[in-house]
């Protein structure tokens, strides 16, 4: 494993090209509440707290003094709200999108800020005992959590709209499609989570490897591309979540 040893060497360059994939900064929880021995990935929580704090602080600053004629931060936040509202409206429909704006919108905002934080905040300058700080979305736990929440959300949407009749969709249009329809419930969160996870992790790996090979200028275009894909991934995740919820809310045309 000489090659891998080489990879783990931290260069003297400030942009340390150290790759620590699959290592986690474990925190033991559970002992504290005496509910068994559980571990969590500390690096995910540290960075996600930063992301959440960023979102909350910006929201707080922007909505502290709301005016009829917006200015400064409020303008920016209204743009953001308009953007996520449009995502929800386009997928769920004019009539029922309003209660889903917070969920779909927060999906977009959280994933977007998380992805970009991974690319723009120099996490690696902060040393932690194990692993390294990176975008929270490059951990499979985060993306699966978000995908499962999306699944729960569209189940909740469908059942609250159509009651138990929601499950009739499994045998529509014909009962022959039952296995495929059931399979779909698994593939939806699976594809959602793995798409996001894979894209973000791959982007960070590519950048890290390129920085390791050519530490100057060459990684920049890839980094820019990474920013672009990160934004697109956030948009895709939120759009698909909206689409699934909208699909569940669709009333049967009979």
């Amino acid at each position: 494993m000489t090659l891998l040893d080489g990879l783990n060497v931290t260069l003297a360059f400030p942009l340390a090209a150290e790759l620590e994939v699959g290592e986690h900064f474990y925190w033991e929880i559970g002992n504290y509440w005496e509910i068994g021995n559980y571990t969590v990935h500390g690096q995910v929580f540290i960075t996600s707290w930063v992301v959440i704090a960023l979102l909350l602080v910006i929201s707080f600053l922007g909505t502290r003094n709301l005016q009829r004629v917006p200015s400064g931060f409020q303008n920016f936040l209204e743009y953001a709200l308009d953007f996520v509202r449009d995502i929800a409206k386009a997928q769920i429909g004019e009539k029922e999108y309003r209660p889903w704006v917070p969920f779909v919108g927060t999906l977009f905002l959280f994933i977007f800020v998380a992805n970009w934080s991974g690319a723009l905040i120099p996490w690696k300058l902060i040393e932690i005992p194990e692993s390294e700080l990176a975008a929270p979305t490059n951990d499979i736990n985060t993306t699966v959590a978000l995908a499962l929440l999306t699944s729960l959300a569209y189940f909740y949407a469908g059942i609250s709209k159509r009651g138990i009749g929601y499950f009739k969709k499994y045998i529509e249009p014909t009962p022959i499609l039952l296995p495929i329809n059931i399979l779909e419930e698994f593939t939806k969160p699976l594809s959602l989570s793995f798409r996001l996870f894979g894209n973000i992790l791959a982007d960070e790996l590519v950048v890290a490897v390129l920085v390791f090979l050519v530490p100057l200028f060459v990684p920049l275009p890839v980094m820019a591309l990474g920013l672009f894909t990160s934004a697109i991934q956030a948009l895709i995740f939120a759009t698909l979540a909206g689409a699934y919820i909208g699909e569940s809310l669709e009333s049967e045309e009979e």
Partner: peptide, 20 residues
Amino acid sequence: GGLFDFDATLPLVAVQFLIL
């Protein structure tokens, strides 16, 4: 560790997200 290391992070991130 490992890339696909699921643990208590998953539900806690979910809860955290709902709080957010």
